[in-house]
C-alpha cells in the first residue's frame, strides 16, 4: 500500500517536474549565452497558457472538438504568440541595454515582467479562467479496494510532449548550424562575433526557443491544473528559476534534472510531511545546493565573462 502511494506521489512529482524543466530551459539558455536572468520568462509562460486557452475556446466555438487537432492548433498558437513575445521582449527591453552594467538588464527584466502581468490583467481580467477538460481518464494499477495508483492520460501527454521537446532541443543544439553557433556564443560572445557569427540573431533565437518551450509548458500545465490567472506565471517562474539554479544555471541537462528533482521533492514533501512545507523544502534545497555546490548539480565553474 505504501508502495502504490509512493508511486503515485512519484508520478505527480515527475509530471510537475517535467513542466518545470520545460520552463527552466528558457532561464538557463538565456543565462548561458548572455549571463542575465530573464525575469519576464514566467510571464511568457503565462501568456502561452492564455493564448492556448483562447485558441481552444475559439475552436470549441467553431465546433472543432477532435482532440489531436485541438491540441496541435493550441500548441502552435501558443508557441507562435509566446515566441514573438519572447523575441519582442528581447528586442525592446534587453538589447538596448546589453553590455551595460549587469544590474541594468536585470531591472529591465523585472519591469517587463510587471508590465506583461498587468497587460494580461487588463486585457483578460483578474479572475481565474477555467480550462475546459480535454482529456479524461487514465490507467489505474493495484488491487481494487486498497489504494490504487493512477496514471492519467494528461500526465502521459505531459511526459511524452516534454520528452519530445527535450530530445528535439538536444539534437538542435548538438547538430544544427544554429545550435553550434549558440554553443559558440555561450562560450565567448566577443570571439564568436569576430568569427562572423551574427550574435544578435543567435541571442534572439535563444529567447525565441526558451519562449516556445515555456508556451508548451503553459498549455500542458493549464490543462493539468484546470485554471489560469494573470499572476500564475510569477510562481511558476520562480520555481523554474530554482530548478535551473539547482541543476546548474547555464546547463541544459542541468535544467531538466533540476526540474525533475524539484517536482519530486515538492510532491514527496506534501505527500509525507505537509503541504505547508512544500515551498520550504524546495527553497531549502536550493540554499543547500548553493552552499555546498554553488555551480549547481551539473554546472561548470563559472568563467568570468564580459
Amino acid at each position: 500500500m505504501l508502495d502504490s502511494y509512493f508511486l503515485q506521489q512519484l508520478i505527480n512529482g515527475l509530471t510537475i517536474g517535467s513542466a518545470y524543466a520545460l520552463i527552466a530551459i528558457g532561464y538557463t539558455m538565456v543565462y548561458g549565452i548572455i549571463g542575465m536572468i530573464n525575469f519576464a520568462h514566467g510571464e511568457i509562460y503565462m501568456i502561452g497558457a492564455y493564448t492556448s486557452l483562447i485558441v481552444i475556446s475559439g475552436l470549441a466555438a467553431l465546433g472543432i472538438a477532435w482532440l489531436p487537432v485541438v491540441l496541435i492548433v493550441a500548441l502552435l498558437g501558443a508557441v507562435i504568440v509566446s515566441s514573438s513575445m519572447g523575441w519582442a521582449v528581447e528586442r525592446v527591453a534587453y538589447r538596448p541595454v546589453r553590455g551595460r552594467h549587469r544590474l541594468i538588464p536585470l531591472i529591465s527584466a523585472i519591469g517587463m515582467s510587471i508590465f506583461l502581468q498587468n497587460y494580461v490583467h487588463l486585457a483578460q481580467g483578474s479572475r481565474n479562467m477555467g480550462f475546459p477538460t480535454l482529456m479524461e481518464g487514465g490507467f489505474t494499477f493495484g488491487d481494487a479496494g486498497s489504494f490504487q495508483t493512477s496514471l492519467s492520460y494528461i500526465q502521459i501527454t505531459i511526459f511524452v510532449i516534454t520528452l519530445i521537446c527535450m530530445a528535439a532541443l538536444s539534437v538542435f543544439i548538438a547538430r544544427s548550424k544554429t545550435g553550434r553557433a549558440c554553443r559558440a556564443v555561450s562560450q565567448d560572445l566577443g570571439m564568436s562575433s569576430l568569427l562572423g557569427i551574427n550574435t544578435n540573431r543567435i541571442i534572439a533565437t535563444t529567447f525565441v526557443i526558451g519562449a516556445a518551450l515555456a508556451a508548451v509548458a503553459g498549455l500542458l500545465l493549464g490543462m493539468y491544473y484546470g485554471s489560469i490567472d494573470p499572476l500564475f506565471g510569477f510562481i511558476a517562474g520562480l520555481k523554474a528559476f530554482t530548478a535551473a539554479v539547482l541543476g546548474g544555471i547555464g546547463s541544459i541537462p542541468g535544467a531538466m534534472l533540476g526540474g525533475l528533482i524539484l517536482g519530486v521533492s515538492e510532491s514527496m514533501t506534501s505527500g509525507y510531511l505537509s503541504g505547508e512545507y512544500k515551498d520550504v523544502v524546495s527553497f531549502g534545497l536550493l540554499i543547500l545546493i548553493l552552499l555546498f555546490k554553488p555551480t549547481g548539480l551539473l554546472g561548470k565553474p563559472e568563467v568570468e565573462k564580459i
Partner: peptide, 20 residues
C-alpha cells in the same frame, strides 16, 4: 489537517493524500 499555499495550482499531492 493540512495547509496549502494560496496561489498554488498543483494539488495532486494533496489529493493523493486525501485519497489514501
Amino acid at each position: 489537517f493540512d495547509g496549502i499555499t494560496a496561489g498554488n495550482k498543483d494539488f495532486s499531492s494533496l489529493v493523493t493524500k486525501l485519497k489514501q
